[in-house]
Computed example of a mutant assay.
Amino acid sequence: MPHARFLVVFDADSTLLRNEVIELIADEAGRGAEVAAATEAAMRGEVDFAASLRSRVAQLAGVPVAAFARVLARVEPTPGAADLIDAIHARGGVAAVVSGGFHEILDEVAPRLEVDVWRANRLGTTGDALDGTVSGEIVDAAAKEHSLRRWAEERDLPLRRTIAVGDGANDLRMLSAAGLGVAFNAKPAVRRQADLVIDPVDLRELIPLLP
């Protein structure tokens, strides 16, 4: 593992990306509005994330895998994402993403943004369509915190050399564990508990925070 000076771990949806990807996939099933409402409740911390994710993914059953091409075409990085990741690398840092979203999208988007390491959920499939399940362990608040700690440990970085950036309730444990927890474009519960709140939806605002 190459030496790194620091680690920045991002949430994906509504943080590094402007979209909530599950809502884009749900649009393909004609269930975008219902899934959007459930996602909002989960991000506010009103319902258990894992249970909410399973119920929302169940709404995606039958969506063809081929629809991911249309979804990817709609995914937009948050303004300033590329500039921030360039700045992280220029200062000898590592850019990471841990997402309650899906590898099927992140595996395409993360390399384009030059993210160094990422982790997300996987959608179950039967044949050439989604079967409405999550395959394997769900990436929830505990998994996000564990990912941050593991990636720091692998690089011999103390947690004080880590920054976590997120918007939803499932990011709170990760933000608390990091040396600096940043609420970005965030829900009220996250804004109350983070070390720092950034309101402009432009990731370049984080560049002055880098070590």
Rank of each mutant, 00 (worst) to 15 (best):
L113A: 11
L157T: 09
V109P: 01
P79H: 08
A142L: 06
D128F: 03
I88K: 08
E145F: 01
W151P: 13
I88A: 05
P77A: 15
R160S: 15
L148V: 14
D116Y: 08
V63M: 06
P79E: 05
P77M: 09
T78P: 06
R112V: 10
R91P: 00
I88D: 03
L159M: 14
V94I: 15
V94H: 11
H146Q: 15
E153L: 13
A110C: 15
T126V: 10
L157K: 09
L106W: 01
H146D: 13
G62S: 09
R150M: 12
D131E: 10
T78C: 05
G124K: 08
G100E: 06
R70Q: 15
L84C: 08
K144S: 13
V117P: 07
V97N: 13
I105P: 02
D140S: 08
D116I: 05
G127P: 12
E145Q: 15
R122K: 13
R112D: 05
R150Y: 04
H103Y: 04
A81T: 07
I85S: 06
A95P: 11
A67S: 15
A61K: 14
T78R: 10
D131T: 05
P158R: 05
G101Y: 02
A129Y: 01
A61L: 01
G62Y: 00
G80D: 05
N121G: 11
V65W: 02
R91G: 14
L130Y: 00
A67L: 04
T78L: 06
R70Y: 01
P111F: 04
A67V: 07
A96Y: 07
S135Y: 00
D107P: 02
G100I: 02
G124D: 07
L106G: 09
E154R: 14
G124W: 01
E108Q: 10
L123H: 06
R150G: 09
R155F: 03
A96K: 11
G136M: 04
G132D: 06
W118V: 11
A90Y: 00
H89L: 07
E108V: 14
G100K: 09
I105H: 04
R149K: 15
V109W: 00
D128A: 15
G124I: 01
S147P: 00
R91I: 00
A120K: 08
A120D: 04
I88T: 04
R149C: 14
